[in-house]
Design a protein around this nucleic acid. Sequence first.
DNA 1: CCCATATATTCCTTTACAGGTATATACTGA
DNA 2: TCAGTATATACCTGTAAAGGAATATATGGG
Lengths: 113, 113
Amino acid sequence: MTLFASLAEPSRREILNILIEGETTVNTLVDRMPLSQPSVSKHLKVLREANLVTQRIDGQRRWYALNNQPLQELDQWLAPFRQQWSRRLDALGQHLDQTSMTKPSQGQKGETP
Amino acid sequence: MTLFASLAEPSRREILNILIEGETTVNTLVDRMPLSQPSVSKHLKVLREANLVTQRIDGQRRWYALNNQPLQELDQWLAPFRQQWSRRLDALGQHLDQTSMTKPSQGQKGETP
DNA sequence: CCCATATATTCCTTTACAGGTATATACTGA
DNA sequence: TCAGTATATACCTGTAAAGGAATATATGGG
């Protein structure tokens, strides 16, 4: 499953949000979610395969932790769109400049009194 | 459909990527994608409902354009995770400081020979 | 070795969705 | 008004995935 598809499932995003607080075990997650243990385990498997979490084995417990790398990829995927909206802000800025009541005489930018 | 679910579909992400270049019509998209016209229209409907695109009607053409707002929400969703990985970088920095070969006497950072 | 605990896997059912074909709707120009 | 173009919708089919119950696997304690 792709990164996006893994994140499409609300329960999986919830798991990631819980993991922000730190490493936890499967049962801890089960206690905090309205899902059966097998369901949680299956979601964790998906997250593992998407590399969104790592698993550390400690006796009969499995400690799960966030892995940020794929989220950084998501961050990068957003980059071209971010350019879009910053360009829009620029345009807005220009527009405001053009329509502003201040004399546009000299200063181009950042000329706050 | 949620924002994430809308983005989970590769063809829809492709459409968004095409729209970065600017407003286009449905047929233009169809020409650039390996999908039938009805399929593209259905994806556009999903994207519209997720508010990821806007539609401008011009005679028999419908011009579709990106709407950044939901992507900015995605950006915000990432925020807490970003804190995670920046914290990690901090930790790495500290670790490097502690294990560095330079006398830890005075200079704290940026003391490259 | 036996039982309890922690987690994973299998199996089954239901649902959602993507894709196509066919068709409807709306606009345009002659 | 009619033919043609642009887009949307309806309908059908195949597939994937989510959820639970039951079961398997592995570990720890006595």
